[in-house]
Design a protein around this nucleic acid. Structure first.
Lengths: 125, 125
DNA sequence: ACCTATTTGTCCGTATGTATG
DNA sequence: CCATACATACGGACAAATAGG
């Protein structure tokens, strides 16, 4: 786990951290089931605040890439549990689509045709 | 906007706040384009910390229900932009499914058959 | 064009709680 | 029982974007 941070970049530190770890997971440099270093340790070695690291970890958790629990730490999600990981996210997406009046069939089509580029997390407008 | 909080409940305050506002949006009690009260005002009137209110607002933003910008405030998302709101979320879901080795067709099926119950935000396991 | 107030964004620090091992 | 580690909430500070005068 080589984590780099550039405090001078205008990208927030927590986002840089999340991106760095996300890339490691995507590239297989950290194996499923492996535990990430504790937020406290990362904070200490990078000289950033504990909350900043936790924020990064929570972003990855919201993306379903890791799971976190007090006492246990942050663990890279098992690929074998892929569907299980996706289900709650799909349920949330479906619930939101319902609220917005988009039927399930339309939503499924949007998913089927979805591109994967540009998934940055903006301000929703 | 009638926001209720019960500090004795074991549900976190920020989650209670988000749920309260989410319900107002879903029920149409707050109109699209309407601005939510500033986090500072809410914090003052409910006697909670500013960050706690911002946390709740950020949850709603991640769900695509509102948009936030410094100086402007938090505004309820337009229903007419429903698809636009969903697209980035779909892209993220698709990207994650890709990483997990789930093909787009399977993902679309999961979405089509998705139930809407139990969409609580857990620890991913 | 300028200035000011407002409002969210990020980061730091501290404290307490809760689950895990 | 105890140490570890994340979860939540409080507080303060400064930055950046926006709106209004």
């Amino acid at each position: 786990m080589l984590l780099r941070i550039d405090p001078t970049r205008d990208e927030p530190v927590y986002a840089q951290l999340a991106a760095s770890i996300r890339a490691d997971i995507a590239a297989g440099r950290v194996v499923a089931g492996e535990r990430l270093p504790s937020a406290k340790d990362v904070a200490g070695s990078l000289d950033v605040n504990l909350h900043t690291v936790l924020h990064a970890y929570q972003v990855l958790r919201d993306e379903g890439l890791i799971s976190m629990r007090p006492g246990r730490g942050a663990v890279v999600a098992e690929r074998g549990a892929a569907v299980a990981i996706l289900l709650p996210r799909i349920a949330r997406l479906a619930a939101q689509a319902d609220e917005l009046g988009i039927d399930r069939e339309t939503l499924a089509s949007l998913v089927r045709d979805a591109g994967t580029e540009d998934i940055r997390k903006g301000t929703s407008e």
